[in-house]
Every structure is written in structure tokens, then in C-alpha cells.
């Protein structure tokens, strides 16, 4: 069914698209749009066109049979469609759509677009469609002057970096006779990160320190309990294990260490499998390392990301992985 549908309007769709691209490029390139007279487009919907055709048929029938009752039905239909255009326009007017953010996702999940909607007057039956893809759309029955949040799954499932396409804000109110629409072209990108693929982290860490334990350096510290040492006079009393003293009458001192993460290097070349697989493995490692607060370096055939840690670093690395184009770059 969908394949059948998508084939037919292809020429029209592409034509429409080029026309709109040409004329509307700048008007809608904002992060927020308030629908007004110069940003609202109104035309009869497909049902509206059928309605007009039936009105014309009624008119012809009324004229040919010189039948006033049929004629008045036809005139009524014409007037109604004009009123519907006004109603549709007034319904959409004053609606403000504000871009909030895009939540990136890991393949095969879809990134989610977040918008804020709010309207001065009540706006009914509003649908928001991303890039004319009716699978990526949401519908709101009523929008009032209370701002509401709308989320829209974007139709991207494979790894990559995607420039956001046009968002269509449309309504078929009233009676589905007219379609009133506008666009929002947000100038931003979104990423679909590679899928996670579990990989043993040890194998790919190029250690730089001798005293390691699973690739991590020990440094005397305060965080993690390591072992007990014989008490020396200069050690003070604060760390004496009184439990042991009660049992053995021996003064033992608790020794703590900080597992200072080892600087790790994740190298594309050290991964196994095809490119996508390698990226997936790297993606997993990056996430794991960030979770364990391990500083790491990411090495891709064309790029080296210097050592760092933290969420921004992780995001930067993931974005690099997502937009990785090939080995030969």
C-alpha cells in the first residue's frame, strides 16, 4: 500500500519541493516561527478538491435541469469552502512553534525532535510532519495558550550525521476541507550514533604505565579500600581499623587507593570486522570509558581526538564516529 502511494506523486512532489525550496528558503530558516499572514499557506485539501468537484457537478446538474434546489446546494458548497479557508487560516494564525532540541540516538533507535507549541487563540487539529514523511508525524487535537511540548521521532535509523529537513506544520481544520500549513527549517544537525557492540575492553588499551591493574594505575588515595598495613607511629589514629584491634589486639591501618583511570587509546585499526562493526565497537568503548571516567583518545584513520574525558568529550567522539565517512579520508 505505501509503495503504491509513494510512486504516484513523485513528480509532483519533487516539483513542489523545488518550487518551495526556491521561494521559501529564507523565510522559514529560524528556530521559532509564529504563523502569520506571510507564513501561512492555505489551499483546499484533497477532500476539499473533491468537495469542489462535487459542487461543480451539482452546479452543472442544477443548470441543466433548471433546478433551484440543486443550484442552491451547489452555491452553498462553494460558500462553505470559502468560509472553511478563512476558518482554517484563523485557526492556525497565532500558533508559535519553537525548536527545542534534538535528542540524538544510538542506531537503530530514532533521534527525537522536541518542539514547543503554543497559541494565542485555540488551534485545533494540528499535525507536525517531518520532511513529508507521514511516519514521522505527531498530531495534537488542541493547542491553547499553555505551552506544550511535542516530540517527533525522526526517520533515521542508520548511523550518520543528518542535517534537519523541513518540518511541516499543518492542519486540516475544519472538516478536513482545507489544508493550512507552514514550515520550520531548523539549521541544525542531528546524529545517529553507531550501534553498541560489546567488546572486551582490555585488548584495546595501549597501557603506558607499569603498575597497572586491569590497565589502571594505583595511587595512594582516599576513595577505594585496598589493604591493611601495620601501624606506624607517624600514621596517626584516624585510619586505624578498630575492628581488627578488637579481634587481634594489633594496630592495623586501612590503606586507601584512588583507581586513577589509565589513559586509554581506542584505535579504529585495532578493532576487528567491517567498518560499521569497528565503529560500533568503538562506540561501546567510548561509552564504557566515559562511564568509568577513563580518559581516552580516539584514533580514526583520518582523525585523532586527543585525550580527554567527560560528557562533552564523549559527545564529540560519538559525533566523529557517526559522521565517519570512510578509511580513505
Amino acid at each position: 500500500m505505501p509503495s503504491k502511494k509513494s510512486k504516484r506523486p513523485n513528480i509532483f512532489a519533487s516539483l513542489k519541493r523545488t518550487v518551495f525550496d526556491k521561494f521559501l528558503k529564507h523565510k522559514h530558516q529560524k528556530n521559532s516561527i509564529t504563523l502569520e499572514h506571510n507564513t501561512i499557506y492555505v489551499l483546499p485539501s484533497s477532500l476539499g478538491w473533491y468537495f469542489i468537484i462535487v459542487a461543480i457537478l451539482n452546479f452543472v446538474m442544477g443548470i441543466n435541469y433548471q433546478n433551484n434546489l440543486i443550484l442552491i446546494m451547489s452555491y452553498l458548497m462553494f460558500v462553505v469552502i470559502v468560509l472553511a479557508v478563512f476558518m482554517g487560516y484563523s485557526n492556525a494564525k497565532g500558533l508559535t512553534v519553537t525548536f527545542d532540541k534534538v535528542l540524538p540516538s544510538f542506531s537503530p533507535q530514532q533521534p527525537i525532535l522536541k518542539l514547543y507549541l503554543h497559541s494565542n487563540s485555540i488551534c485545533q487539529s494540528l499535525s507536525i510532519t517531518y520532511n513529508n514523511d507521514f511516519k514521522a508525524s505527531t498530531h495534537h487535537d488542541e493547542i491553547s495558550n499553555k505551552s506544550i511540548s511535542s516530540s517527533l521521532p525522526l526517520p533515521y535509523e542508520t548511523r550518520g550525521c543528518y542535517k534537519l529537513e523541513r518540518i511541516k506544520i499543518a492542519s486540516n481544520y475544519p472538516f478536513g476541507l482545507v489544508s493550512v500549513w507552514s514550515y520550520l527549517q531548523v539549521q541544525t544537525k542531528t546524529f545517529v550514533y553507531p550501534a553498541h557492540e560489546y567488546v572486551l575492553s582490555d585488548a584495546h588499551i595501549s597501557s603506558q604505565d607499569e603498575n597497572t591493574q586491569n590497565g589502571m594505575t594505583e595511587k595512594s588515595g582516599t576513595e577505594e579500600f585496598d589493604n591493611l598495613l601495620i601501624h606506624q607511629p607517624e600514621m596517626g589514629l584516624s585510619r586505624i581499623s578498630w575492628k581488627h584491634f578488637a579481634k587481634t589486639k594489633q594496630l592495623l591501618v586501612k590503606d586507601f587507593v584512588d583507581f586513577k583511570a589509565t589513559d586509554a587509546l581506542f584505535d579504529f585499526d585495532l578493532m576487528s570486522g567491517a567498518t560499521e562493526q569497528r565503529l560500533s565497537q568503538l562506540c561501546y568503548l567510548v561509552c564504557e570509558a566515559t562511564e568509568h571516567n577513563t580518559p581516552f583518545m580516539l584514533k580514526l584513520p583520518s582523525k585523532l581526538i586527543s585525550i580527554n574525558t567527560g560528557q562533552t568529550h564523549k559527545q564529540h567522539c560519538l559525533e566523529c564516529l557517526s559522521s565517519f565517512a570512510g578509511e580513505k579520508q
Binding site: Y50, V54, A55, N58, M61, G62, M73
Partner: peptide, 11 residues
């Protein structure tokens, strides 16, 4: 839409 046409054909 068809019904609109049928209704007027009653006349």
C-alpha cells in the same frame, strides 16, 4: 463527498 451528490440528486 459522494453523499453530497446523491443528496442533490434527490431533488
Amino acid at each position: 463527498t459522494l453523499t453530497f451528490f446523491l443528496l442533490s440528486s434527490v431533488y
